[in-house]
Structure formats: C-alpha cells, structure tokens
C-alpha cells in the first residue's frame, strides 16, 4: 500500500471544558517512523487513544489504512497494534503465557501460538525469563515483552506511546534498533515521545504539538533549519553556558551578533558555534506558542 496509512483531519477533543485537541491535521506516509513530539499535557496520548479507537473524537476524522475509526472500528482494530504508555502486559502471568494468550486472541491455533511464542521470546531475548511471572521483570524486559506482544500478528500500523520512558540507556538503544527493524519490514510506526534525541534518531517525520495544536511538521533537518543556521554559545571560565544566540549562519550575521554580544557581556567569555539541536527547535517552537497564548 502506498500513500498515507494514517490521515487525520480537523481533529478536536474536549474533556469537560478542557480543550485537549484543537484541530489536528496529520498525514503519515506508509512505512515511515513518525514521531509525535510534545511536552506533557500536549495531547499526545489523547491523540493515540483516538487513533486506536479507545476514545471517540468530538469533531474531525481519522482514517487508518483507509478505514474510518468511528464507522469502521472493527477494520481499524484489525489494522493496528497498540503499545500504551504503561506496559500492557498481564503481571500475574509469565512472559510465555502473556504471549500465548495474545496469540490465541489474535486467531492463531494452539500449535501456531506455541511456535510464534517461542519465536518472539527468542527474538526479544526473553527466553531465559519466559516462565517467570512478569511481576519480576525489569522495565526494559517489560517493554520488550510489550512490543513482542504487539507483533504477534503484524498489523500495518504500530502505535507506541512513549515507548522508552523510564528505560535505561541500553534498553533504549535496543528498542531503537527494534523500531528500525520494524520499519525495514514495512510496518508504519507511530510513536510519541518527550525526548528530542529519540525523535531525531528514529523518525522520518516529526510533528511537534503543543496545547492540542500542530506547531510544526517535517524531517529533523527541516525543523532544525527553521531555528536558523548556526547557534552561538557563550561560556565563562567555569564552562557554564551563559547565553545562546541563533544566527543565519552567514559570516555577516555571525560577526554582527558577536559584535552586539561583545558590547553587552564580558569579552573574556569563550565562544562556541554549533548546529542547532532538536532542543533548540523544541524550545523555539513551544516558546512562540507560549507567547501567542499569553498575548
């Protein structure tokens, strides 16, 4: 399937008087890793909940693999797998039992379920812990099991809500590798994250949302170029960052900015010039948003 596997148009959702989603438009091309980036309370989880049929939208439409999430719920459910924010595993069961249960619920026969379970345990490095209760699993093991469960049957779209929150660096890298492999297999991965580095590393397309609105969409490179060419950083002799200034990157602009700086701060400060990071993008985009809502 080519084209867009997810299409969101004019999506709005209110809880009571609180507007959570305020007119979201998105298009996710088939086979991409798509990251939804935003601060806490931006509406990321609500958006995932609506796209995965858990919550009904107030206004607007969502189509997954061509099926409408309201009128064609059942076909949507056949097209997606959800790995929610909290590990969606059964704590009282073992890893093996969890997998086998979801295999059976996904329509595999008993024999197929057993084969598939062994396969997934191996692939996700959980064979040694297969017969242990999930209660005893570490955060990383839980996440791996969680994703393994989501892949029992490969549905075209995988939703991952903050997949690496609370994981250590090694588990996080391992998960990134898994997401890359999924993409190679043609699965569209839609993930939310608060970590800029994660979006930067993983995603083909990043959408930044804040207060229920899309603030920016594009590749990491495109978003970074919005902040400007190069960033000037000033450090004192103790290596503390004193000031950050963005520039267009041209000699003219950098010289002008440095001249301005020299007249207002101590000329003893050291200068570092670097490319903008996703942090700069994020802060710039959400700060603009904040100013707008204050005015």
């Amino acid at each position: 399937m080519r084209g867009n596997v997810i299409e969101v148009k004019g999506l709005r959702k209110k809880f009571g008087h609180q507007i959570v989603l305020d007119g979201i438009d998105l298009a996710v091309p088939t086979g991409t890793v798509y990251a939804l980036l935003g601060p806490n309370g931006a509406g990321k989880t609500t958006l995932i909940n609506i796209m995965s049929t858990l919550v009904a939208p107030d206004e607007g439409s969502v189509k997954i693999a061509g099926y409408d999430i309201v009128t064609d719920k059942n076909m949507v459910k056949r097209s997606i797998s959800l790995t929610g924010q909290f590990a969606a595993v059964d704590e009282m069961l073992t890893g093996e039992e969890n997998l086998r249960m979801i295999c059976r619920l996904s329509g595999l026969t008993v024999a197929e379920s057993n084969v598939r379970t062994v396969e997934l345990l191996q692939h996700f490095d959980l064979t040694a812990a297969a017969r242990k209760s999930v209660k005893t699993y570490s955060g990383g093991m839980r996440r791996r099991l969680d994703i393994a469960i989501s892949l029992v049957i490969s549905r075209p779209v995988l939703f991952l809500d903050e997949p690496t929150t609370g994981l250590d660096t090694i588990s996080r890298r391992a998960l990134w590798k898994i997401i890359d492999q999924l993409k190679e297999r043609g699965i569209t991965v839609f993930l939310t994250t608060q970590y800029l580095e994660e979006a930067d590393q993983l995603a083909d397309i990043i959408t930044v949302i804040d207060e229920g609105r899309v603030v920016a969409t594009g590749t990491a490179k495109e978003l970074k170029s919005r902040v400007g060419g190069e960033v000037i950083e000033l450090f004192n002799d103790k290596d503390d960052l004193i000031r950050t200034v963005s520039t267009t990157g041209s000699i003219h602009d950098i010289r002008q900015k440095l001249n301005e700086l020299a007249s207002i701060v101590s000329p003893e400060l050291r200068v570092n010039i670097r490319k903008p990071s996703m942090d700069d993008v994020f802060l710039a985009l959400t700060a603009k948003e904040m100013e707008r809502s204050l005015s």
Partner: peptide, 25 residues
C-alpha cells in the same frame, strides 16, 4: 511476519482464553 490483516479470534476462542486466564489467576 506472521498472519494477515483479516485474522481474528472467534467469539468462542475469545471467551475460552479469558476464562482460562481468570482461572489461572
């Protein structure tokens, strides 16, 4: 990659699986 988009458990299997789960718990 395993399975297809159309695959799903029957009502009977679903109930049997959940009853089995609860008894196990």
């Amino acid at each position: 990659i395993h399975g297809s988009i159309s695959k799903t458990a029957s009502f009977r299997t679903t109930n049997a699986v959940f009853i089995g789960r609860s008894i196990r718990l």
